[in-house]
Amino acid sequence: MFSLVSDVFEPQTWLESRVYDLLELHDIKQPEEIHLTELCAAYGIELWNITGRSRAHPHPYLPNRYVIAVDERLPLPSRREKIAHELGHLLLHEGIQPIGSTSMIHWQEAQANHFAEHLLMPFPMFVPLLENCNRYEAPFLLARIFRVPLALAQKRFDRLLGRLYAKGHPINW
């Protein structure tokens, strides 16, 4: 089935293309190779465990460096999602942005969310994973393999189904 719909797995937005370029740059080809700690280190970003709201901010001691502080009480899948989201802010929005309009903040949050989705669950990595499961098992399988919250896996899987439908491919698995 998936060999017939390879076009669905190609990047379809500027952001998706940029994230896939980042994965290629770091030679990340499998879900187990998505190491956020290493990605952050490659860009000089420190990860700190805190108790409180996860966020990114300038490093308090090192100029032109940043910190992603993540609530240590979160389960690992949620921590990964938060780190990827904050990494998206830092890489896409050139660090900390000044206070902007509400619409600009919403746009940046949506863009950071999409960055995290593409980084943590790239569609091309879905191909071998989904060949031997049904559409009801798929989100659970994806959540486990990509180490993300089930809600994120479900959203990403729904986006895949939407792409299949938009391309005119039957969704009958």
Rank of each mutant, 00 (worst) to 15 (best):
E33L: 12
T51K: 00
K167G: 04
L141Y: 07
L15M: 08
A41Q: 15
N113T: 11
L161G: 05
Q154G: 08
E109R: 12
K155F: 04
Y61V: 09
Y66R: 00
H118K: 10
E81A: 15
L130Y: 06
T13R: 05
H118Y: 15
F115E: 00
L130G: 04
Q111I: 08
P58L: 06
H35M: 07
R144F: 04
Q111N: 10
L152Q: 13
A42V: 06
H26D: 11
I68D: 06
A41I: 09
L120H: 02
S103I: 15
F157G: 03
E137P: 10
A41K: 15
H169F: 15
L161C: 12
L4K: 09
E81F: 14
H85P: 10
G95Y: 05
R144V: 02
L160Y: 01
L87T: 03
P75F: 07
W14M: 12
Y20T: 05
R65G: 03
E137W: 07
I105R: 14
S101M: 12
S3Y: 11
L161W: 02
R159N: 11
R156D: 00
L47N: 05
C133L: 08
P31V: 01
R80G: 05
L129R: 02
T51G: 00
L161N: 04
W173A: 11
L76T: 10
E33V: 08
E32A: 12
R79D: 07
G100C: 02
H35E: 11
D158S: 07
N64G: 03
R53Q: 13
E86N: 05
R156N: 05
P63V: 08
L47R: 08
L47V: 01
S6G: 04
R80N: 13
H57P: 00
R135C: 08
G52D: 00
A110S: 13
W14K: 13
Q30P: 07
M121F: 01
L150W: 13
F115G: 01
I50L: 00
I99Y: 11
I99R: 14
R55H: 13
A41E: 14
E33H: 14
N64C: 05
R80P: 04
L164R: 07
V127K: 14
V148L: 04
E137R: 14
T13P: 03
E16W: 07
P122L: 11
H169Q: 10
A143Q: 05
V8T: 02
I96K: 13
I96W: 09
